[in-house]
Write a protein that binds this DNA or RNA. Structure first.
Length: 230
DNA sequence: GCGACAG
DNA sequence: ATCTTGTCGC
């Protein structure tokens, strides 16, 4: 079952408004909790797909058992695009639909794994941070690209990592999830430590570069978009 | 001023 | 994100 969502009343419509919202929420991020232990409880992947022609956006939330990586529950939501893509403001494009999908789940999500960044963000408040603050859930960001941050290529073995640097500050890590394959870029969202975020990411990548959570959510949101009615 | 720039 | 076939390999 796919739920339908509308853009929330008062949702930012301009870049200036969005920046102001980030400023107002940034201080609510919690960075001093370790978060759930890797391999226990639920881990939920969220992802979004777009159809600009139809002005449609579909989100999926897929809950996995963290120990077995079996799918425990799924939910999808479809709505209108709520914001244009602007680097640094991705959250405003994805969050309304993602929240609707999370709300439609029949069980607690546990740790939420986002496709994008948390702390590794120009204003230290990426999608994962924003979603965490709005929901109160522990969140991490796992991105496929390094945005604007500098890093040294990690060693070839799986598990190797190197800091993502904003100047001298470690805002995340380039983490090798498959030997000799391009790393993923992990950063903390809300209520999770960077060490735990990386441990979770490794636990979610027994076979592929990207976490099973995002892989599952990606497939599901694309299907929801295809099947969405006009 | 000119690019680069999560999805 | 999205446009997109076949193909090489386990």
């Amino acid at each position: 079952m796919t739920t339908t969502v509308r853009v929330p009343a008062g949702w930012p419509a301009t870049e200036a408004e969005a920046l102001a919202v980030q400023d107002g929420l940034r201080g609510r991020v919690v960075l001093d909790e370790p978060g759930p232990a890797p391999g226990t409880g639920h881990v939920t992947g969220v992802d979004v797909a777009y159809d600009d022609e139809r002005d449609l956006v579909a989100a999926a939330a897929v809950v996995l058992d963290a120990a077995t990586l079996d799918v425990v529950a799924e939910a999808t939501a479809v709505g209108r695009v709520s914001f244009p893509y602007v680097p640094g403001l991705l959250a405003f494009r994805e969050i309304p639909t993602v929240r609707a999908a999370l709300d439609a789940l029949p069980c607690p999500p546990g740790l939420v794994v986002c496709d994008g960044y948390g702390l590794a963000h120009p204003r230290r408040f990426g999608l994962a941070s924003h979603l965490g603050v709005l929901t109160g859930l522990p969140t991490v960001g796992v991105a496929k690209n390094p945005f604007t941050f500098a890093y040294d290529d990690p060693d070839a073995p799986r598990g190797s990592h190197a800091p993502l640097l904003a100047g001298a500050e470690e805002v995340g890590r380039a983490l090798r999830t498959r030997a000799a394959v391009k790393p993923v870029f992990v950063s903390v969202g809300h209520r999770v430590s960077l060490d735990n975020a990386c441990a979770h990411t490794l636990a979610l990548t027994p076979e592929y570069r990207l976490p099973e959570t995002t892989r599952r959510a990606d497939t599901l949101c694309r299907r929801a978009l295809r099947e969405a009615q006009a």
